[in-house]
């Protein structure tokens, strides 16, 4: 029990810590964003969780194509669904944050475009899965699309922002102020928060696949 549960407890505790500490610590005074820099702990963690989930899905898709085990397909699709959940959370929180700092819900920012395209790609993945009836074929075709789309997304998110002229997000283009402003106290909250959410994402993934496995087991 404890051996299997420890990482789930750890995830919950880390996020709980980030909620308490993230709201109570002193943050550096920054122009424009002011106190909302605290959103970093919560909003950016959503993206971390999403990327880890999509990466997990990518790995399981490769594993599926190398062994054709249905368990791998279950994990791959489950990870995509979990990733989409965190992606939508990240998108929504990001839009609210953007409205109150940059003045618009949507700005033409490479980071935002990347997020939107990721969501499109993986929603398309779910549609693709829905449109194939035969189970083995569905697993195979969607694994191929998953690998194809993920590789192009990595390029999209890794290469394009570097070519961009400017970005409102830190560390890209002409704007590096926020990352420099990320002082030690903030790091002490941000990294645990991201790790905590990633662990919770894995937990949700596990719940999802276990439920699906049970349903299949009953039939």
């Amino acid at each position: 029990m404890i051996r299997n549960m420890w990482w789930k407890v750890l995830g919950l505790l880390l996020v709980l810590y980030s909620i308490i500490a993230g709201l109570l610590i002193d943050v550096p005074a920054l122009p424009v964003i002011h106190q909302t820099i605290r959103n970093l702990f919560y909003h950016v963690s959503m993206w971390f969780a999403m990327f880890v989930m999509l990466g997990t899905s990518f790995i399981f898709s490769i594993r599926y194509l190398s062994g054709f085990r249905m368990k791998d397909d279950l994990m791959a699709s489950g990870a995509v669904y979990t990733g989409i959940f965190f992606g939508l959370m990240g998108l929504m929180t990001g839009m609210v944050w953007a409205k109150f700092t940059w003045g618009d819900f949507w700005t033409n920012d490479p980071q935002l475009n990347g997020a939107a395209v990721s969501m499109m790609a993986y929603l398309a993945y779910t549609v693709l899965r829905g449109s194939i009836d035969e189970v083995a074929m569905r697993a195979r075709i969607s694994a191929v699309y998953n690998i194809f789309a993920f590789m192009l997304l990595v390029i999209f998110l890794g290469v394009l922002p570097r070519l961009a002229d400017s970005s409102l997000h830190p560390g890209k283009g002409g704007n590096t102020s926020t990352m420099e402003g990320l002082d030690m106290t903030m790091r002490m909250v941000f990294y645990p928060a991201a790790l905590g959410w990633v662990l919770i994402a894995f937990w949700l993934l596990q719940l999802h696949t276990r439920r699906r496995a049970l349903i299949q087991g009953i039939h």
């Binding site: 395209v117 929603l123 398309a124 549609v127 449109s131 009836d133 075709i141 699309y145 789309a149 192009l152």
Partner: peptide, 27 residues
């Protein structure tokens, strides 16, 4: 090739294709 293996391939072609070609198009 992916879309042709599924049921409604004409609609799928568009939704599967856009995210894939978008990085290239923007570049």
């Amino acid at each position: 090739a992916i879309a042709s293996r599924s049921g409604n391939n004409a609609a799928l072609m568009a939704i599967l294709g856009f995210p894939v070609v978008l990085p290239l198009l923007l570049l």
